[in-house]
Amino acid sequence: MMSSGSFSLRTRPVAGLALGWLLLLLIVGLLAPWLPLSPTTPDLLLVAAPPATGSGHYLGTDALGRDVLAGLVAGAQRLVLLTLPAVALATLLGTLAGAAAGFWGNQRLRLPIAAGGWVLVAAWWGLRLPGTAFLCILLGIATALTLLTWRVARHPAARRRYTCALPLDSLVLGIITLLGSVPRLLLLVALAAGPPLTTGQLLALLTLLAWPETARLVRGQMHWVRAQPFIEAAQASGLPMSRIWWRHALPHACRPLLAFGPLSLAGLVGLESSLAFLGIGQGPDVVSWGSQLASVRHDTTAWWAAVFPGLALLLTLLALQKLAVLASPATNK
């Protein structure tokens, strides 16, 4: 990304600052466990203490007596340990789903009819119906039938008779539409309501909500890639479809992700902060920029408890925006 084009920090100081800020966040986030700062320990003698008063709390304390600087570091750590992995997972999931849907459409991917047995077994398992032994037998039969019909279906004459088309495009598009029909924040609030979530559960939730955007983008790009002459040439040369998809189509379909990744990250940072601000799905001992912003409600005069995390959030979002601009093909021409 940075090697392409004529990008230089000297010619673009704002971009340099943005990258520097993101790098700083990354380093602070990774080093946070070793820094001598505790974001949840209250200083009972210095509640809502203003910054730079020689109390040892350089950015002051909030209404509960927690150090604001320690909270900023904890927020950076959360960004590195939660939001970044969530974006990575969502990008991976969205890319695979969108690329597969865009490439194979509704008719091109054919599966042995017996594979339906797998669906039934999965449904049985999902519903947690009784009978583990029975489940194992069913699983065995479904596997055997699938393998058998797979072999039979390799013969062109039997292909139509023993296989059925998997409407992959409709399936992916349906899930994307379903998840997109409810505003992301509302959906997240609904899913996260109840007892505080673990970091893993929150990661899964953020991933679940973030992948459709990537999938939609990659699917659209894949439609364009699929119509390119080199794909037709590869098909004409007799290459297997899976290989064409993986080796030739997918790299081209993924190119917009370089610019979309930072934007996706910015969206998730905002979403996670909104959730933390609302105090949903997270315990009070989990400190992030959003929860720090919320703490100002306990003492509206403690402006520093909101300004510093607010600034950190704003700078991060602007830096990611800048990074997206830098990574876009138009900028690198």
């Binding site: 505790s38 949840t40 320990t41 209250p42 009972l44 509640v47 509960l64 007596g65 927690r66 009070p284 001992d285």
Partner: peptide
């Protein structure tokens, strides 16, 4: 605050 102090 009480809960956080106890936790710490």
């Amino acid at each position: 605050t009480t809960a956080l102090q106890f936790q710490a």
